[in-house]
Design a protein around this nucleic acid. Structure first.
Length: 423
RNA sequence: AGAGAGUUGUCCGAGUGGUUUAAGGAGCACGCCUGGAAAGUGUGUAUGCGUCUAAAGCGUAUCGAGGGUUCGAAUCCCUCACUCUCUACCA
């Protein structure tokens, strides 16, 4: 959520930056927010004055009662009745205006960083890096959905039977390579200084709201009606929310946390082309890295995270590229996002395997995540996160890119985790 | 799941309608004292919003959350969340 004070003070800049997203009603919604805020302020001022008067009166009445001057006290009481009805009306109005302000400002997406390219579609993303040569596979190469059948390592039909589409069963070496990837990614994160946590994979609405999945992506999360809980779409939600309503000390920074969780996505309406096999699932595994940084360090941290992810993909030996997302393709809450895509030779297309973003204060403002500086002043922090990495598409590209006539090579960095060198 | 007891500031903890403007203690910060430290001692120590160019100051709200009663609520009433104890169940 954007800060109302910033909208007020830097309206031109806000509108210019929102323009990069081609956000339609920017000017109208910004003006509306400011108008609601003005109204809020004037109501509060009036309300505070009335409350002050009645607080003072209550004190006097208390004193009069004590002194036994009951009649005088009663007289005073009748006067305060009027104040009371007035303050009640104002309170209702205040709540209403605060809600209107909130509902308006919550719709505004984050402001793109100045380096974000202008553009509406994925085609306009900027390619920051790309491997020089794309791998070429022999004519006989097949996509991963055929490979998993050939080697019997992932079973979608079994998953269909016990759960439904998008919930595969990993079997034998398929299951072991999952476990190997999880451990490899966690160990690498650990080496890079990330503190490991194992959070719950269901969260309450407040947490969903804190990181911005709610109200924006309500329909995308599985919801447990009975207990009012959501299945997490990413570990970003529980991990970042560990720091909801927290005021950190400057010496606690930066915060670097990682965690492995299953992730659940309904992906409502997104079935069809390009979602075969492991390309899009309802349940998948992911290792997430999360950082909390002071504003002046957050972009350096983003590059560090990007380099970490790049290192993982390089160790796995996969052909990849890095994109800087254009304004139109960037997520609602992000100020700058880099996407990693791995080339699938058998599918002849790029698959997104990681997304690393700086949210600046957008999440922190909702989370009320701040730090106390040397002067004792509280400031909003910057939050960042990235997938390091999500398993299914990484597994898909390992299978596809490493296939040979009668086996699939396992990247060497995984051998000590799998205990086998090929499938 | 049933019964009971709880939730107060950074922490512990007092407080059952009106000097609570939240006692007292601990911790922390800064000062005094000291050769240095400890002890001692003094002062300070939450958050949001508003007012203000800003700071200070002042106002207002916040004692788990939300609502209610009252001139006045940490205190009384209602709803919800969470914690603990016992019982039941169970990896």
């Amino acid at each position: 959520m954007l800060q109302i004070a910033f909208l007020r003070e830097q309206k031109d800049q806000v509108l210019a930056r929102l323009a990069k997203r081609f956000y339609a009603n920017a000017e109208q919604e910004v003006n509306q927010s400011i108008a609601f805020d003005n109204e809020r302020k004037s109501i509060q001022l009036e309300l505070d004055n009335i409350l002050r008067e009645s607080n003072e009166a209550a004190k006097i009445i208390g004193q009069l009662m004590k002194d036994g001057k009951k009649e005088e006290a009663d007289q005073k009481k009748s006067k305060t009745a009027e104040l009371k009805s007035k303050s009640k009306g104002l309170e209702e109005k205040l709540v209403q205006v605060e809600k209107q302000l909130h509902d308006t400002i919550i719709k505004l997406p984050n402001l793109p960083h100045e380096s974000v390219p202008t553009g509406r579609t994925p085609e306009e993303n900027e390619i920051v890096y790309q491997v020089e040569k794309l791998p070429e596979l022999p004519e006989t190469a097949i996509p991963h959905w055929d490979l998993i059948k050939k080697y019997d390592i992932i079973d979608f039909e079994l998953g269909n039977k016990i759960s439904g589409a998008g919930f595969p069963v990993y079997k034998g070496k398929g299951a072991k390579i999952q476990r190997a990837l999880i451990n490899f990614f966690l160990d690498e994160a650990d080496k890079a200084g990330y503190y490991e946590v194992q959070p719950p994979i269901v969260v309450n609405a407040e947490s969903g709201y804190g990181t911005g999945q709610l109200p924006d992506k309500d329909g995308q999360m599985y919801f447990i009606n009975e207990d009012n809980l959501y299945l997490i779409p990413t570990a970003e939600v529980p991990i970042t929310n560990l720091y909801r309503d927290v005021i950190l000390k400057q010496e606690d920074l930066p915060v670097k946390v990682c965690g492995y969780t299953p992730c659940f996505r309904r992906e409502a309406g997104s079935w069809g082309a390009h979602v075969r096999g492991l390309n899009r699932l309802h349940q998948f595994d992911k290792i997430e890295i999360v950082r909390i940084e002071m504003a002046e360090n957050s972009y350096a941290a983003l590059i560090e995270m990007r380099n970490h992810i790049q290192g993982l993909i390089e160790k796995l030996g996969l052909p990849f590229r890095i994109l800087r997302l254009c304004g139109g393709d960037m997520g609602f809450t992000s100020a700058l996002t880099y996407d990693f895509e791995v080339y699938s030779a058998a599918q002849k297309r790029w698959l997104e395997v990681s997304s690393v973003s700086n949210f600046e204060t957008f999440q922190a403002n909702r989370l009320k995540l701040r730090y106390k500086d040397k002067e004792g002043k509280n400031n909003l922090l910057h939050t960042l996160n990235g997938s390091a990495l999500a398993l299914p598409r990484i597994l898909a590209s390992i299978l596809e890119n490493n296939q040979e006539e009668e086996k699939i090579r396992i990247p060497e960095c995984l051998w000590k985790y799998t205990g086998f060198e090929s499938i």
